[in-house]
Design a protein around this nucleic acid. Structure first.
Lengths: 229, 229
DNA sequence: GTCTATAGTTCGATAGAC
DNA sequence: GTCTATCGAACTATAGAC
C-alpha cells in the first residue's frame, strides 16, 4: 500500500537526477566533454560527487542521457508536426520546413528550461567528426533526418536523393547556428540584429532555406537536362 | 657572417614548432580544448613535452597560435578575392559569395596540409558561446565578416543591416557545415551524396546561399512596404 | 540513497642539468 | 634548445559506513 506511493527519498532522487542533468548540460556545452568534470557538475547541481556515479554510472552515460532527454522532446514535436501536416495531403515547402525547423529553434530560445545550453551542445557535437559525436548524432538524429528527407522529396519530387540530403543538411545547419545564439549577430550589426526574436528568426530561416532548396532543385533538374541532351 | 645564416638548431626548431602546431590542431579538433592534453600533443608531434612550454608558454597560447596560423591564410585569400572582384566594378551576388565561401570550403577539403582538422576546429568554436570561443571568433573572423557584409550590401542595396548580417551568418554556417565533413551526408544518402567533391559542393552552397539571400532581401523590402502603407 | 575516504591516473607547469 | 625529473593539483571511479 504505502510502498506504491512515491517515497520521500524517491521524490528527492528525481529532483537530484534532474539537477545533475541540468548542471551536466551546462558543463558539457560550456567546456566540452573532455573539459567538463564530474566534480564540477556535482558542485553545480548541489549533490555529492558519488551520487552522479550512483545514478549514471560514468561520464559517458551521463553525456548520453543529457542528450537523450532533449533530443527525445524535439524529435517528438517534429514527428507530430509531420504527422499532422501530411494527414491533410501534401503540404507546401514552407509549411514543411517550418514544421522541421521551428521546434529546434524554439528549444534553443527556451531560456527558462535551460534549452539554450542544450542548443550550444547539439550544435557542437552535430558539427564534430570524432566518434563520440558521430555516434550521438546518428543515434539521436538520423531517424528524424531520414524521415524529413523523404518528406522533402514528396513535396518537391524534382529533388533527387543527393540534392535532398544536401537541402536538409544545409537547412538544419542554418537552424542550428541561430539556435546556438552566440551573440555574434548583435556584435556584427551593432545591435541592429538580435538573435532573440524567435518569430522573426523562424521566418527568416524558413524563407532562406526554402529559397535555397528550390535553387538546389533547379540545379538537379538542369544537370538532368544536360545529360539528356 | 655565419650568425646571419639559419643555424641548424634554428631550422630544427622551426620544424618542431610546425609539428607541434599540426599535432595540436588535430588534438583540439578531435578532443576539444579541455579534452586535449599537452602530453598527448607532444607524443603525437614527436617532441619532448617541455618543448611545448618552451615554444608556446602554455595551453591557451598554443590554442591561439593554432587558430591564428590558419585563419590568417584563409582571410588573406578572401580579402584578395574581394579586392580583385570590386576592382572591376560591382560583381554579381554569385561571384561575391563564391569569393567568400570557396576559400573556406577548400581549406576544409585540403587533406594534404591537415586543413580538415582545422575545419572541424573552426566549426566547433565558431558555434560555441563560451568566452574563449567567442574571443577566437571575434578576434580572427569579425574583421573579414564586417567587410563581407558591407560588400553584400553594395551588391544588394535592398538588404538592410539586419538582413545582411543574417544573410552572411546563414551562408557561412552552411559553408562551415560542409567544411567539417562529418560523413553524415554519405550516411543519410547511402553513399549517393558524398562530401568530398569540392567543385560540386562549392556550386551547391553558392546556389543555396544566393537564393536564400535574395529571399531575405525580399522579406526586408516587404516589411518596408508594410510600414509605408 | 547519501556520504566520506581514498585508490589510482593524468594533468599543466617548472626547475635545473646538459 | 633539449631533456629528465618532479611538484602540486585535478581528475574518474570505487569501496564501504551509515
Amino acid at each position: 500500500m504505502l510502498s506504491e506511493l512515491p517515497k520521500k527519498d524517491a521524490r528527492n532522487s528525481q529532483k537530484a537526477r534532474e539537477a545533475i542533468l541540468d548542471a551536466a548540460e551546462r558543463a558539457f556545452a560550456e567546456l566540452g566533454f573532455g573539459g567538463a568534470s564530474i566534480r564540477g557538475i556535482a558542485r553545480d547541481a548541489g549533490v555529492n560527487q558519488a551520487m552522479i556515479h550512483y545514478y549514471f554510472q560514468n561520464k559517458d552515460q551521463l553525456y548520453d542521457e543529457v542528450i537523450d532527454r532533449r533530443a527525445g522532446a524535439v524529435n517528438a514535436q517534429r514527428n507530430a508536426a509531420l504527422d499532422r501536416l501530411f494527414a491533410e495531403g501534401v503540404p507546401t515547402l514552407e509549411k514543411l520546413m517550418e514544421a522541421l525547423l521551428r521546434p529546434t529553434i524554439e528549444m534553443g530560445h527556451d531560456e527558462t528550461r535551460g534549452g539554450s545550453a542544450y542548443a550550444r551542445l547539439v550544435v557542437s557535437f552535430s558539427n564534430s567528426a570524432d566518434e563520440r559525436s558521430q555516434n550521438m548524432t546518428s543515434q539521436h538524429y538520423d531517424p528524424i533526418a531520414s524521415r524529413s528527407i523523404a518528406a522533402m522529396r514528396k513535396v518537391m519530387p524534382e529533388l533527387d536523393m543527393a540534392a535532398a540530403v544536401r537541402a536538409y543538411l544545409y537547412s538544419i545547419s542554418v537552424a542550428l547556428s541561430v539556435m546556438a545564439r552566440t551573440g555574434r549577430a548583435a556584435r556584427l550589426s551593432q545591435g541592429r540584429c538580435n538573435d532573440s526574436d524567435t518569430e522573426e528568426i523562424v521566418g527568416a530561416t524558413v524563407a532562406f532555406s526554402c529559397a535555397g532548396i528550390r535553387a538546389l532543385a533547379m540545379q538537379a533538374v538542369n544537370q538532368f537536362d544536360e545529360k539528356v541532351e
